[in-house]
């Protein structure tokens, strides 16, 4: 078995390395995970250390990276122009490696609102937004958002003006999207750092707008 990162030294856990507060794997697919992992480690295809490091790297990935990028776009028109022109290259300025993907930044305005989905699976800009939320991967979201985006947005508590055009973009294995939400009014004096706190994960997927700094949520 792989090393246990948690320390439960005083406990008697001779038989496995799962922490006691975590559900024991019992489903067939959970056992399949154990089998594949142990085979890959035994054969030297992967190491237990690498898997653990990858899990830790995942836990560090969060929408905060995306929020930093969007906040910069809000305060720096020239940066925003470059981001819209070539997101892959521009994002590298934030130290993010965007391997093979084509990243496309889409700017929301009061007239045009973008929403991102992956109808076929769960393609998501993980390098900048972390791991996708469960609803993003759900059949309900994937099925409905392209047909009735306004109704779906309402379930998120997001109400747009009837005059706002909604454009839903479908991600693929090779092309992922980052939405630049509308900068809320009354934020002219805020610093880039303060602005970044207004930029939520959902606002960069397009299912929500950026937080209202006065604390009201529409």
């Amino acid at each position: 078995m792989t090393g246990n990162s948690g320390s439960h030294g005083g406990h008697d856990h001779s038989h496995n390395d799962f922490q006691p507060d975590i559900k024991e794997p019992t489903e067939n697919w959970e056992l399949l995970e154990i089998a594949l992992r142990e085979l890959l480690v035994d054969k030297g295809v992967l190491s237990a250390r690498e898997i653990q490091d990858e899990i830790e790297a995942w836990e560090k990935k969060s929408p905060e990276k995306g929020a930093e990028i969007v906040a910069r776009a809000w305060v720096d028109e020239e940066f925003k122009a470059r981001l819209l022109e070539d997101a892959n290259r521009t994002i590298q300025e934030f130290g993010i490696e965007v391997e093979i993907l084509k990243m496309v930044a889409l700017e929301n305005t009061p007239e045009l609102h973008h929403v991102v989905v992956c109808t076929l699976c769960s393609c998501y800009p993980r390098p900048i937004l972390g791991v996708p939320p469960l609803w993003y991967k759900s059949k309900q979201y994937r099925s409905r958002v392209i047909r009735e985006p306004r109704a779906v947005l309402r379930e998120f508590g997001t109400k747009l003006s009837d005059d706002t055009e909604i454009r839903v973009v479908d991600s693929t294995a090779d092309c992922r999207y980052l939405v630049i939400p509308v900068r809320p009014v009354g934020t002219e004096k805020m610093t880039e750092e303060e602005l970044a706190k207004l930029i939520t994960r959902d606002s960069m997927i397009g299912t929500a707008q950026a937080r209202d700094p006065i604390g009201q949520r529409s």
Partner: peptide
Amino acid sequence: DIGGLPEGPLDLAEHEPTMT
């Protein structure tokens, strides 16, 4: 290929991934 098919309401609960 489920885009556009009728479906029920979303479940917006956040999910903490299991170790598996």
